[in-house]
Write a protein that binds this DNA or RNA. Structure first.
Length: 326
DNA sequence: AATGACTTCAACCGCGTTGGA
DNA sequence: CTCCAACGCGGTTGAAGTCAT
């Protein structure tokens, strides 16, 4: 297949940012004649640009139906949902967002949405909770203040040496999410000393919160045996009993100022009641869930899941999502 | 106020696809 | 069927703007 160079540099065609005069020429010409052949347009419009540059300028900036400004909450939700279905098919995503261009969506994704998802412990490529160990380690450093990133290290080494099973992975995801919440804006007044105090607590306490056993100790101590009776049946303890967190982490709570007992809504609107005790794990109710949660449902389903062989049930909510009692 | 680091996003690059000759 | 021009898309770049020190 042959491909002719679009913008042959030898022709001395202009590149770089467009001037208002060039914009005006292009808009005027298209309003009067339509764009027709983009290749032929620049000459006919009196522009010293290649056709491709003109097409891009028109499609991404000058088109009258382009919506500019911040993406609304609904648009963001749509982007996340569509991206989870379509991947980096920006032009297809753009067809579902009137007035938005593929380029704009792509840029917005790369600069804003990706970060948001990462901060929530979601892999922006797969839209699943991050389970990649390297990514976990890197992420904790990426998102953490100095020193706090080391919090992950014992996990990593233990996990790598013990051939992590699905149960352990799932727990790590939960603990990781806890760390992220602790570590980000949810607790804006959290001082670094408090963070370090968390670090000094036995990490295994999280394990106790999770399942009422010392299962996490097993992982933390680096043994390869899967935790006995490792389920998440007792996880809701933390939701039902916020004081438990106070008990475990008084230093943290003291530094939270006006933080009141419950957990902040860190993740989009899943309420605990819909999860209903020990049955919460597979009750995904996909249709009623927001996109991200629906996506989480993928890993919870028995088929094709990375947890396919696991007996465990994974709660489809962020560990620190506020437990809404409606 | 000056400077460097970081972020944003418009524009470019190059590849894959399509359709006409 | 092959060749080629043109288009469209996704990834990448770099200038400009913003923030932190």
């Amino acid at each position: 297949m042959g491909r002719s160079p679009c913008c042959d540099e030898s022709t001395g065609l202009k590149k770089g940012p467009w001037t208002p005069e060039e914009d005006e020429k292009l808009v005027d010409f298209i309003h009067k004649n339509g764009h027709g052949s983009w290749r032929a347009l620049p000459k006919r419009a009196g522009l010293n640009r290649c056709g491709k540059s003109c097409r891009l300028r028109w499609n991404n900036y000058l088109r009258p139906d382009i919506k500019r400004g911040e993406f609304s909450e609904e648009e963001q939700q749509s982007i996340i949902h569509l991206h989870s279905l379509l991947g980096n098919k920006w032009s297809r995503i753009a067809t579902h967002l009137p007035g938005r261009t593929d380029n704009e969506i792509k840029n917005y994704w790369n600069t804003h949405m990706r970060k948001k998802l990462l901060q929530r412990g979601i892999d922006p490529k797969t839209h699943k909770p991050i389970s990649d160990l390297n990514l976990l380690a890197n992420l904790s450093q990426l998102l953490s203040p100095p020193n706090f990133g080391n919090f992950m290290t014992p996990w990593d080494s233990a996990l790598v040496s013990s051939q992590v099973n699905a149960t352990q992975l799932a727990k790590i995801q939960l603990v990781q999410s806890m760390m992220q919440v602790i570590n980000t804006n949810t607790f804006p007044n959290l001082s670094e000393s408090s963070l370090l105090n968390i670090k000094t607590h036995n990490i295994a306490q999280f394990g106790d919160v999770l399942d009422g056993t010392s299962a996490i100790n097993t992982v933390y101590n680096g043994t390869s045996d899967p935790p006995p009776q490792a389920t998440f049946d007792h996880f809701p303890k933390l939701c039902e009993n916020p004081q438990l967190f106070d008990t475990l982490y008084p230093d943290v709570n003291n530094s939270m100022g006006s933080f009141e007992g419950g957990f902040q809504p860190e993740f989009v609107g899943l309420n605990y009641n819909s999860l209903n005790g020990s049955e919460y794990s597979t009750q995904t109710e996909t249709g009623s869930l927001p996109p991200l949660v629906s996506d989480l449902g993928e890993i919870l389903s028995p088929s094709g899941s990375q947890f396919e062989d696991s007996k465990i049930d994974i709660p489809a909510f962020h560990p620190f999502t506020k437990c809404q009692h409606i």
